[in-house]
Design a protein around this nucleic acid. Sequence first.
DNA 1: GTCTATACCGAGATAGAC
DNA 2: GTCTATCTCGGTATAGAC
Lengths: 187, 187
Amino acid sequence: MPQAKTDSRERLINAAIKLAYQHGFGKSSLAHIAKEAEVPLGNIYYYFKTKDELGEAIVERRLAQMQARRMEWDEITSPKERLCFCINQVSESRDLLASGGCAVGTFCSELQKTDNALAKKASAIFVQHLEWLETQFRLMGKTKDAHILSLHLLSALQGVAFLAYSLRSPEFVTLETDRLKEWVRSL
Amino acid sequence: MPQAKTDSRERLINAAIKLAYQHGFGKSSLAHIAKEAEVPLGNIYYYFKTKDELGEAIVERRLAQMQARRMEWDEITSPKERLCFCINQVSESRDLLASGGCAVGTFCSELQKTDNALAKKASAIFVQHLEWLETQFRLMGKTKDAHILSLHLLSALQGVAFLAYSLRSPEFVTLETDRLKEWVRSL
DNA sequence: GTCTATACCGAGATAGAC
DNA sequence: GTCTATCTCGGTATAGAC
């Protein structure tokens, strides 16, 4: 059944993600989001009781997207190559990163200061990702250091995204992802 | 002349910095800032034509603060030890970083999405700091790589602050700053 | 230069017809 | 389930007395 029932909810989430990435979630008014999604303003409240709930929906969407991606990466045979592939994904989105930052990083960063319940939920995206990274390092034989290594890698990648965004420099992304791939291979 | 004329302007900037750090600049209303500074609301506009201008004042304050700190660090004899000292400062503020993030990092991060003029001004804080870092590396004989190394260091430090904040983990700060000091010493 | 009162607008949220 | 009209509040900014 193609487009069976209303996909308004879907469109609202996508619009919210898009606008939150462009201008921040706080600055994206429900009116603006509704317009982008081509849904009448008042209709939002049929799907989300509050704006925060829409924020939660974004987090859940990201959670699912990341998990789906990792499942694809799991198809790769070697854990080392999985990590390199993951780093490559960052490398390939260098232009996006330089112009708008890391989609989940900037979103989480914004939530930290404002809402406390949402902030915790958002951090779960990182926690989940860290677990996956840790698994890869463990499979590489780094049983003892796996946790530390996963933190280091994610921290480095977020640092890259942040600075590349601040300086609007895609070149820097390449520079650092190359270094990180080198580092992973040397382990 | 102690407390010669009105330090209202000073108090407003300090209040704005404090509240922006706690809840974000966007979420800090002028009413709230005025209250914190113990200045009547309408009085803000005698010192700042607009809220953005208050934001600019924060940037300029940070710019000055960082420069002052770097001038202190310049007293240290060896450039290598200067960098280690700088990393130590981060290490020592681990609790603050874990509970509220990097003061300039989170502030800049927020501005990126909202205002464009302010965003550029804010990034200048990083650019200025990068120049100082670069100088240290150059003094260490890393003539060719100085720029790349400075980017790497700042990126790493911002990544640390970001992840430590997201995970509310001061331990992670220690972990990574130790690693970075090691790295600097090995150069 | 300092303060109070208030204009004005845009935001989130609701009511209720269809 | 969908849409329009509207309420209410809190925000920035201004006016103008002292």
